[in-house]
């Protein structure tokens, strides 16, 4: 199976910290930041590398601050090595 890699970019100045993306994310890759943006909201940040680019967070995001990228890396496909005995 090809490895699917995802990446999200969050526009943190527009994020209102409503936390709806946290529940939508199946990989629990988004959390609330410790810091605030210029409007005073704690914003969402990506906390791990498990994202597979399913775009669930972006779909429920009311302010459309999340851009989602997905790359299917075929080179990283695990190859089964068969050893042939002489």
């Amino acid at each position: 199976m090809a490895k699917v890699m995802g990446e999200i970019i969050i526009d943190i100045e527009r994020c209102k910290g409503c936390e709806l993306c946290f529940d939508a994310c199946p990989k629990e890759a988004i959390q609330l930041s410790d810091t605030i943006n210029s409007k005073g909201y704690q914003f969402a940040i990506k906390v791990n590398d498990l994202c597979n680019g399913c775009a669930s967070c972006a779909l429920v995001c009311p302010d459309a601050v999340i851009t989602v990228y997905r790359k299917v890396d075929k080179a990283k496909r695990p190859v089964k090595v068969i050893e042939i005995e002489d």
């Binding site: 990446e7 851009t67 989602v68």
Partner: peptide
């Protein structure tokens, strides 16, 4: 490597004007 234009799955629609909305969070 992933954040390239050809890998975009979801982006804010062009028709939605790029300004902050006045609606409450959520």
């Amino acid at each position: 490597d992933i954040c390239l234009a050809e890998n975009v799955v979801y982006v804010k629609p062009q028709t939605l004007i790029d300004i902050p909305m006045h609606y409450c969070p959520g």
